[in-house]
Design a protein around this nucleic acid. Structure first.
Length: 618
DNA sequence: CGTCTCACG
DNA sequence: ACGTACGTGAGACGG
């Protein structure tokens, strides 16, 4: 047995590292005492990296357990006897604490120790969730973030060591890259062990402090319960993952590489060696006699997709417009960049993350954004191209299943109508009208055109985002004066929107620049962008509609069918013969009342691939 | 490592 | 005083 000790904020701590099977006896005694006194015990795992499913056996290296003053580490890597002890401890402890528990460690223990995440999540308190509820901002955004280090420094001891950074410098000394370090550092390394022990001590001490802060701020306990439940449902979706059509993806990878190379070769004829270099592309275009007009923030010529599409005489569907002779370089750059990006960001990423059973497990962060919207990484399947079915075609429902996609109907607008109590909008929703056509009729009159509807839609989003006429005009392509007139009319027609925005800014100002949503989420505003309050409240409440719907689905036993949350949409995989019933049940779970406004959803049943919902045959 | 670009809602 | 488009993840370039 190895012993470590130290002092934090004047309070000492002791850490013990189990080295031999006989060391497990005092470990078990300690766990038993914690269980009997119902003391919360923090649990943490050290692993070979972040790929819980794609790594394979041997991923879990160390498991740590600790209260505020004493910690224990088990060398899982050194034999089944240690893994068995960890499993026993996870099962017997009545109250555990984890930092990002549902987001990581619960999945690790589920996959690599065989302890179901449902079992541990039911008794876990997640300090990352608590911290997020206090202040959702990242460090970059002026908050303290939700990493253990800054939270420890703020709530426990300003001199608490940065265990993550400390480890990284150890990796550097051992001449290991960061990605390799976690897998290759010897389990006996003193810094590795000390920081592993310290993490559970810090997490243990953090929990009561965060809980006290939440109580002081008046954050409702039910909000924390709700977020822990949403996080667990998301973890279940991560564990399920999705089937990857590996054969198709390998072919796709080759096709996209070929396309990227072919078009890069054309670009090279014009002197562009790297199609991703804006500098080279703009220089070559100017050389050809093209005139560029837009500059980037740093003063370089802007050569983004919109600029190049115009020069290449292409419309949104990549079809020739016929308004000018197409520039062959712009065309080649666009096509090479697109193929290259789709290959690396999507096809490569799919294949890098596939597990032994042919599934990918996109990681869902259930409260990532400062508005608590969810995000998905590895791979970022929330952002797959929707204009072309080829990428989504690679992801499949389970064997014998079909894909079901269920979308909320215009959820952000309905949330705005509900939160701001917009009378005419609420009436239109109740009457089942198309909201953008309804607005177009009010703003432009009975004979409104498709173009008018588009402007109305642009204004609707512009209002929610806090945009002005200039931006709406740019986005919709409508003339600025028409947009200005339409926006003025919009304010007359829906006076409650502007009034609510003003009230919300005042409320936030009186609450130390924090807006509070109806569910109790705290939404800090940036001092120079307080207009964003409308967007924050609407986006956050729409996100809570998704969270509420997921809880309804949990109550009805539908979670095993769920695959992904996509902001206003839920993707599911269901047996072909049950698809209709499950699709109906999911829609019902996404149908409820929000402050007198109906929230509703439409389900679409596809074939086996996700791409089938975008026109693919399979 | 900051900036730019591009994919999504 | 006035007006401000919101939120993400990922890859490439270039200093």
């Amino acid at each position: 047995m190895r012993h470590f000790s130290g002092t934090l904020n004047g309070l000492g701590w002791d850490g013990y590292v189990v080295e031999r099977p006989e060391d497990l006896e005092p470990f078990r005694d300690w766990i038993r005492r914690q269980a009997e006194s119902r003391t919360p015990v923090a649990v943490d795992t050290e692993t070979c990296g972040l790929k819980i499913y794609a790594w394979g056996p041997g991923f879990l290296r160390l498991a740590q357990f600790g209260n505020e003053t004493e910690a224990w580490a088990l060398p899982i890597e050194h034999g089944a006897v240690y893994a068995e002890a960890a499993v026993w401890a996870l099962r017997i402890l009545p109250d555990i604490t984890g930092h990002n528990w549902a987001g990581f460690d619960a999945l690790v223990c589920d996959e690599h120790l065989g302890v179901p995440l449902e079992e541990t999540c039911a008794k876990a308190t997640d300090t990352k969730i608590l911290a997020k509820l206090i202040d959702p901002r990242a460090e970059m955004e002026g908050g303290i973030g939700q990493s253990l280090k800054p939270l420890s420094a703020h709530y426990i001891d300003a001199s608490a060591p940065d265990t993550q950074d400390g480890l990284k410098s150890v990796f550097k000394d051992l001449k290991l890259k960061i990605a390799e370090g976690f897998a290759k550092i010897p389990l006996s390394h003193p810094t590795y062990l000390e920081y592993g022990l310290l993490d559970v001590i810090l997490t243990s001490r953090l929990r009561p402090r965060l809980e006290r802060t939440l109580a002081k701020l008046g954050v409702p306990q039910r909000l924390s319960v709700y977020e822990h439940r949403v996080a667990r449902i998301c973890a279940q979706m991560v564990r399920a993952g999705m089937v990857l059509d590996e054969e198709y993806t390998t072919g796709l990878q080759a096709d996209l590489s070929y396309d990227a190379d072919q078009f890069a070769e054309i670009a090279l004829r014009y002197g562009v060696e790297s199609v991703n270099s804006g500098r080279q592309v703009s220089a070559a275009l100017l050389d050809m006699g093209e005139s560029l007009t837009e500059k980037t923030a740093s003063g370089a010529w802007k050569v983004d997709k919109a600029v190049l599409m115009a020069i290449a005489d292409l419309d949104r569907d990549w079809k020739a417009i016929g308004s000018r002779p197409p520039n062959a370089l712009a065309d080649a750059v666009l096509r090479s960049k697109r193929a290259g990006k789709w290959r690396s960001a999507y096809a490569d990423n799919f294949l890098e993350n596939v597990d032994a059973r042919g599934r990918i497990h996109p990681n869902i962060q259930s409260m990532q954004a400062r508005t608590f919207r969810m995000s998905v990484t590895q791979p970022a399947v929330q952002t797959l191209p929707s204009s072309d079915k080829m990428i989504r075609r690679a992801l499949l429902a389970d064997e014998g299943h079909v894909m079901i996609s269920t979308d909320f109907q215009a959820v952000e607008l309905r949330v705005l109508a509900a939160l701001a109590d917009v009378k005419r909008m609420k009436l239109a929703i109740a009457n089942g009208e198309d909201l953008h056509s309804f607005t177009a009729r009010l703003v432009f009159g009975e004979g409104f055109t498709d173009k008018d509807r588009k402007v109305s839609k642009g204004i609707a989003f512009g209002k929610v985002y806090g945009g002005g006429a200039t931006t709406v005009a740019r986005q919709t392509g409508a003339p600025i004066d028409a947009v200005q007139r339409a926006m003025a009319k919009y304010d007359q027609v829906y006076p409650e929107v502007g009034r609510a925005a003003k009230d919300w800014r005042i409320e936030a100002f009186n609450n130390r620049m924090v807006a509070v949503s109806i569910t109790g989420h705290r939404l800090p505003l940036d001092r120079d962008r307080t207009y964003a309050v409308t967007n924050y409240l609407v986006q956050s409440t729409a996100r809570d509609c998704l969270g509420q719907a997921l809880i309804h689905m949990d109550e009805r036993g539908l979670v095993p069918f769920l695959r992904l949350p996509i902001h206003d949409e839920v993707l599911a995989s269901a047996p072909k013969e049950d698809a209709k019933d499950i699709a109906r049940a999911i829609s019902e779970c996404m149908t409820f009342d929000l402050l007198g406004v109906p929230i509703a959803a439409d389900a679409e049943i596809g074939k086996r691939s996700w791409g089938s919902l975008y026109g693919a045959d399979f």
